[in-house]
Design a protein around this nucleic acid. Sequence first.
DNA 1: ATAATGCTTGACGTTAACGTAATCATAACG
DNA 2: CGTTATGATTACGTTAACGTCAAGCATTAT
Lengths: 133, 133
Amino acid sequence: MHDTTMTIREMCDAYDVTPRTLRFYEAKELLFPIREGQKRLFTKRDRARLKLILRGKRFGFSLEEIRQLLDLYDMGDQQATQLQRTYEIAQARLQDMVEQRDELNEAIDDLKEQLKWGEKVIVSMTKTEKAAE
Amino acid sequence: MHDTTMTIREMCDAYDVTPRTLRFYEAKELLFPIREGQKRLFTKRDRARLKLILRGKRFGFSLEEIRQLLDLYDMGDQQATQLQRTYEIAQARLQDMVEQRDELNEAIDDLKEQLKWGEKVIVSMTKTEKAAE
DNA sequence: ATAATGCTTGACGTTAACGTAATCATAACG
DNA sequence: CGTTATGATTACGTTAACGTCAAGCATTAT
């Protein structure tokens, strides 16, 4: 076989993404598949990065944020300052997520209130409806 | 003054929206300001609707959903079935919001785990760094 | 009368993350 | 050698909710 590289299709099957997505990620400089003639060959490194990309997406990071994180990651496994930076970005993202959730919780509570009110109205209306019969 | 109507600017100031937004809402048939010559005049009804629109947005309804709700609202204050329908739409939205929040909570927990791990790595790296000095 | 406002209607621009063709190249298979 | 499979490139389309001009009336202040 091909040493340890994968074709675009194999990647798609393995990670459940479309070719377009992989090409898109390459265009955005998130992945750097090597070329055999015309075709892309994804290395072990690409696969590791893709996993991190997909994980990052689940966390709600934007692709741009993910790119920055991956870059830091690469630049210096030796530089603790970089890792520190990574940590900070993640912290900030966490902050955002918590805020979002809290807002959502508020909205949920508000909407629940509205619904309680709506129930009362519906009940009273169906009552008067019956009364009108 | 103008009986009970407001100009576009007054509306903007009162509700903290841009003229573009009000025109946009009119184009989307969420508002129906009357015309005095060329100019828009927003009635009490428009203001009531705008309040509902803004509230709906806080709840995360799309403008299209809001339009439908407003329409139902108008159509029959007398028809309890319509109100019932409104109630159902809101319930569905609530469902979505709860799901979203739960997903967000999961992601938050996962990310927190990651961060704990990151902390450990950073600590150990700074240690070895010192050791290397 | 003229300049400065305020308002109007288009109509194109923006953002994210791809989807969706259309066209072309290459390689294996029979 | 023709066909099928796989992949490449290019480029426009999608969605939501407006933002951002541009150009033109109309009223009001000077």
